[in-house]
Amino acid sequence: MNETKALEIACPLPLNDHRHIKLAHGGGGRMMQQLIEDVFVAAFDNPVLRGGHDGAVLEFPHGRSVLTTDSYVVRPLFFPGGDIGALAVNGTVNDLTMCGAEPLFLTASFILEEGLETEKLWRVVKSMRSAADAAGVSIVTGDTKVVERGHGDGMYINTSGVGRINHDTRVGPKRIAAGDVILVSGDIGRHGMAVMGEREGLAFTTPIESDCMPLWSTVHAMLSAGIDIHCMRDATRGGLCAVLNELARGSSLQFDVDERDIPISESVRGACEVLGLDATHVACEGRFVAIVPRGDEERALYVLKSQNESASMIGRVLDGEPGLVTIRTPIGGRRILDMPAGELLPRIC
């Protein structure tokens, strides 16, 4: 594709003038126009965006549609296996996906910190385009603001997304029923460890790559296979543990999972042992929990495994204590898996 080729070259802004983002890049004048044309339109290039209006005029298919929005703040901006741009696209794409919608269009708003290297912005924007292509969505409108130096971590991104639902499966916590089977779409905790690993002093020699990826193709495959997904939710901050707790509360049922069935890579596991972290608390950016009726679980697992070999059936929904998540430990004990409290901190004791 022409676009792909164009994206491989260096940042198109004339670097001698614009090595760093200046306040004027958000000032509404010529510099801002140049930034929009040379960076954002160049990278996201599509007919709607090229229209250059204040908003995107969309040809929208019939049926139910889904609208979602999310803001992305991450330090560092680049981490093994991804960056804030990939995160901003995949995060919103996955929010649409978890509602059962096929993602179609995204908006992208940037809050840039004065002094940000333009080259970094270009790398992020390129990464957004690649992620959007991989997820099959177009970035159709956006906005840019520049804040004074010291008032942002380089950049923040907000993306909103619209998608359509073209199937009859109703997906949501209220459909979860006792007897349902809980599955997870792949090994957990990579994203959180990738980001934590980049922070000072916590780096491992072998970098753990983020699991940041779009989930629509996996969910589409499940829906196409006729699996009656009762509920799905992607595991982001708070990890698998938070999702299980949210859904147990949302459905007023008890969830019971088996720790031995939770897929964790040996690198994440080793890092968690060293830092004293519970892998179920560690963030993911490309994993989801699917809850399916009994009888559908084998087919669901088959479809999930065809997309990610480490997908696993991890537990069941019980008609027990509402909102409680219990976990069977490797030695056959049982404990409560409670919501993670606050910031994830490595411990030595």
Binding site: F204, T205, T206, I208, S265, E266, S267, V268, R269, G270, A271, E273, V274
Partner: peptide
């Protein structure tokens, strides 16, 4: 030295 824990390696 470099020490391997599972598949995670650290100094």
């Amino acid at each position: 030295g470099q020490v391997r824990f599972g598949e995670a390696v650290r100094d």
